[in-house]
Design a protein around this nucleic acid. Structure first.
Lengths: 244, 244
DNA sequence: CTGCGTCACTCACCTATGTTAAGAAATTGA
DNA sequence: TCAATTTCTTAACATAGGTGAGTGACGCAG
């Protein structure tokens, strides 16, 4: 990514074309405090008090919950441009953790900077609401995915979603993208076991839908994959919203 | 409920004490357009364009997604006081449906009224953000519930959550509450089959944790139920938030 | 008051997915 | 560059939960 804020621009641009003033505002907010952190570390843990809004600039991260007996549910993946919950600092404590999967750079936006940004631009305010609503919609889709779909459909869905989202921020090359997750991560994200993820992945490969190796995915049959997943991208709300 | 807006006041009061001016603002917004609709009807369907924010005043409703082959995932329950997504009208179309379970009365708040309300009161704006963030947190908990927990734990969780939420708006009497869901609804909400819900419910009864009949639930052993569910209410963020 | 639909409940049987274990391959780190 | 560790893969076996097909009890619409 040539410029730190680029992924964020692209992310929000899915909702509305931003003015150059908007872009400057975002860049300023995102330049104030940039951090780098290694793979498999927590950015913030359950129980802590959120004080800032984080924006992922590069790398992959995840939101997850850990149960007392060690079971882990991965709740969402963060890719560059993603915001971790506008206005979280309203809440007293985190009900889940945010951890990195790869090395990550992210920007912290303070509560006051965040509020300032919203005061300065109605368009940004709306774009942030949009982003929040999409986060919610994605969480619902995951609930549906885990609740109703078979292992095969679930994984197919996951790849469809990631391809669409990575495309948006310029991180997919055609139907390929870098994919730093282990099968274990995939298991915890889809509510299945690593063994069964492995079996199911083999099946997806045998069916010629995807190619996954060396931490890289190529969707070899995009239409087939979408069909297998019954993938309907409406929940990503990439149609530009209503108020444009 | 003596007064239409009462449940909404109680709902938001979990975050911040509202001033009487705030309460008046809310009451006015909620009085503008009140509708009544019978049980098992859609308030808005997937694909439609959301134009208003709905606030549930009485009865139970649900958010759900239907797959093309008929599978249905219930994504959340609405009880009185609940808002259906602040600012949804930003989105071009619904990615899920909202339907009633019982007869329901609800208020429609127009986009302009909604925005007006947020301009007039910072406290209300924050309370609405809080409500939105809690909705998200609940959705995450459901994802975790379905992804990681056994049938028994899942149902236990569901009852714990509902008891807590109904309490908040004055709709639980000690450890009892009216419960209009069928076992089929419960199945679609927890990602299991009705047969297995039935089996598991029997087990919860045999273990003396709950009593469910005649559309009425009594939690006979609250501590036992919480333990069985590994219930941690932190995700409901009933601690009053940070900015009070 | 009756006939039809819905709902709770059961049973017998089945299968998708989990469990445990172990070796091969890849990656990391000293 | 080799040892240690993590990840991928396979296999044999176990089980939670799904399927399909009922029965009886209500409740309500005609």
């Amino acid at each position: 990514m040539s410029q730190p804020g680029a992924a964020l621009h692209l992310h929000l641009a899915a909702f509305a074309a931003l003015s150059s003033a908007d872009r400057k505002l975002l860049d300023a907010a995102v330049a104030r405090k940039v951090r780098t952190i290694g793979p498999r570390k927590d950015i913030i843990s359950e129980g802590e008090r959120p004080r800032v809004v984080n924006v992922l600039l590069s790398g992959w991260a995840m939101r997850y919950k850990q149960l007392s007996d060690g079971r882990r549910q991965i709740l969402s993946f963060f890719i560059p441009g993603d915001l971790c919950d506008a206005n979280v600092f309203i809440l007293g404590q985190m009900d889940h953790s945010i951890g990195t999967l790869t090395e990550v750079t992210y920007a912290e936006i303070s509560a006051t900077d965040f509020e300032h940004m919203m005061e300065c631009s109605t368009r940004i305010t709306k774009a942030l609401w949009w982003s929040e609503l999409v986060t919610l919609a994605v969480q619902r889709e995951w609930t549906t995915n885990i609740g109703q779909r078979s292992a095969y459909e679930r994984l197919a869905n996951m790849f469809c979603e990631l391809l669409a989202r990575l495309h948006l921020v310029g991180l997919a090359d055609g139907n390929s993208f870098d994919f730093p997750l282990t099968q274990n991560d995939l298991a915890d994200a889809t509510g299945m076991t690593a063994v069964h993820v492995n079996r199911t992945l083999q099946q997806l490969r045998r069916d010629g839908l995807i190619d996954l190796n060396n931490r890289h995915v190529t969707v070899t049959d995009p239409e087939g994959l979408k069909a297998a997943a019954q993938f309907n991208p409406n929940y990503l709300h990439l149609d530009g919203g209503v108020s444009n």
